[in-house]
Every structure is written in structure tokens, then in C-alpha cells.
Simulated assay, not measured.
Amino acid sequence: MVTGVLLFQAIACAVLSGIVASNKNRNPAGWGVLGFLFGLFGLIAALVMEEVEPQEKEVSGRQSSRQSGAQEFDPDKHEKKCPDCAEYIKIEARVCKHCGREFSDEEVKRQVDERRKSVKVDQGGSEGKSGSRERRDEENYKSDDHDTEEILSTHDFNGVGICEDCDYTRGYAKANNYVCPGS
């Protein structure tokens, strides 16, 4: 009888530890084993541990989407090839760091938009959605006489550097005077 109760307690602690660990982006199998072996102490350890951020994995040279699906495009992770020196620079770069070639604001914006479209198509997005979003985005670009801090305050960066509503980076919004449509 006592053995049955102890076995039930060990299994219950293992299952609960695994569930708690899974909710905190930890290995549920490993924490389940700890819950089984150490019982209530393993469950308490799983409860007090901190949550970790989910890891992004490389998939054939491209970044996979986050589990939440919120990340569609991050210009900081994309590069372009300088036509003068053939070196790679960030896609938002206005001046090549290798040869000093300058890119116009319109050229940079066009390159970023083209890359964004290609990433959406690669991720299974349709051209129709991308086109309607692009038309909506054109209305949100403000002239240079607007206050930068006011424009940035329309975004919800939440410490990750990407607006949760429009998926643009802080640098892109600042450089292009982009007002978030979700504000």
C-alpha cells in the first residue's frame, strides 16, 4: 500500500514538473525525470525556475519563424551586396563600410521592401497580402519634419527591437519616419 502511494506521488510529481517546465520553455522530459526521482522537491524546483526565451533555429540558411508567428521580417538579419566593391553590408545601410558608396533613401527603402516581399513569399505569404500591406504602409511614412521620438512612441518594441504590431525594427522606423498603423 505504501509503495503504491509513493509510486503515485512520484508519477504525479513527474507529470506536473514536466508540464511546468514545458510552460517555461524548458525540457519537459528532463524535469519530469527530476520530478519522479526527487518528488515534491523536483516539482518545487520546476516551479521556482525562471522562464527562458525560445531559441530560434537555422533552417537551410534562413531563420525559422518564432513559435508565436510574430516575426515576419527583421532587416537587421539581411544583407545586400555593394555593387561597387562586391562586399556584403546590412540591407538598411546608407553607406558601404568598405568602399564608401552612398545609397539614396529611396534605393534603401526599395531594397528593404523587395527583401521583405521575398521573405514573406518564402514563408508562404501571398502576394495579395503583401501588396495590400505595402499600400497601407505608404500612408504611414511621414516627412522629415516630424519628431523622431513621437514617431517611435507609436510602436510597441517591448524590449525586443521589433514592433509587435508592424514587425519593423526601431532603426527602420527611425530612419524612415514610419508611424505604426497599430497605434
Score class of each variant (00 low, 15 high):
Q55H: 15
R62H: 14
S126K: 12
D74V: 02
D145Q: 12
D147H: 04
V20E: 02
D113M: 07
K142I: 02
E107Y: 06
Y88Q: 15
V108Y: 02
N140L: 09
K80M: 12
N158E: 15
Q71T: 10
F157A: 05
A86R: 14
E114N: 14
Q63W: 14
G171Y: 07
E56T: 14
K117W: 02
Y172S: 02
L16S: 02
T3Q: 13
E79G: 11
T169M: 05
V15P: 01
E127Q: 13
Y178F: 13
E150Y: 06
F38T: 04
F73M: 03
T154D: 12
E164H: 11
F36A: 09
V15S: 01
Y178T: 00
S17A: 10
E50P: 08
R66I: 00
L40V: 11
F41A: 10
E107A: 06
N158K: 15
A86M: 11
L7I: 09
V59A: 10
S68D: 14
C85V: 09
E50V: 13
R62V: 11
N25M: 09
I89E: 04
E107R: 05
G125P: 04
A14L: 03
K129C: 03
D76W: 06
C96H: 04
Q71N: 15
S183V: 05
F36G: 03
S126Y: 10
D145A: 07
V112A: 03
L7D: 07
E58K: 15
N158T: 08
E134F: 15
V5Y: 13
F103Y: 08
E138P: 00
S153W: 10
D84E: 15
H78Q: 11
E106H: 05
H146N: 10
F8L: 13
E127G: 09
E106R: 11
G61K: 11
H155F: 08
S17W: 03
G61R: 07
G182D: 12
G69Y: 05
V160I: 14
C13I: 00
Y88P: 01
G69N: 14
I11V: 14
C82D: 06
S104W: 07
R136S: 14
A93I: 05
E53R: 14
E139N: 06
E114F: 08
G30Q: 06
F73C: 00
N176G: 04
I162G: 00
E106K: 08
G30R: 08
S132E: 13
E106L: 06
I89N: 08
E106D: 11
V121L: 15
I44D: 01
R116C: 04
R115C: 10
A46G: 05
D145T: 06
H146M: 13
I151F: 01
G61Y: 07
D105N: 14
G39K: 07
F38I: 09
Y88S: 15
E107N: 04
S104L: 12
E150M: 02
C82Y: 07
Y172Q: 03
V52C: 12
R170P: 00
S153T: 03
F157K: 01
D156M: 09
I44L: 11
A14T: 01
F41R: 04
L6G: 05
Q9C: 08
V20D: 00
I44N: 03
N27M: 12
I89G: 01
G18A: 12
E72Y: 05
C163L: 05
R110K: 15
P54G: 13
A10D: 01
K97V: 09
R170H: 03
K97C: 05
G30Y: 07
L40R: 05
F38L: 14
N176H: 13
D167E: 07
E150L: 07
I151Q: 00
K80A: 04
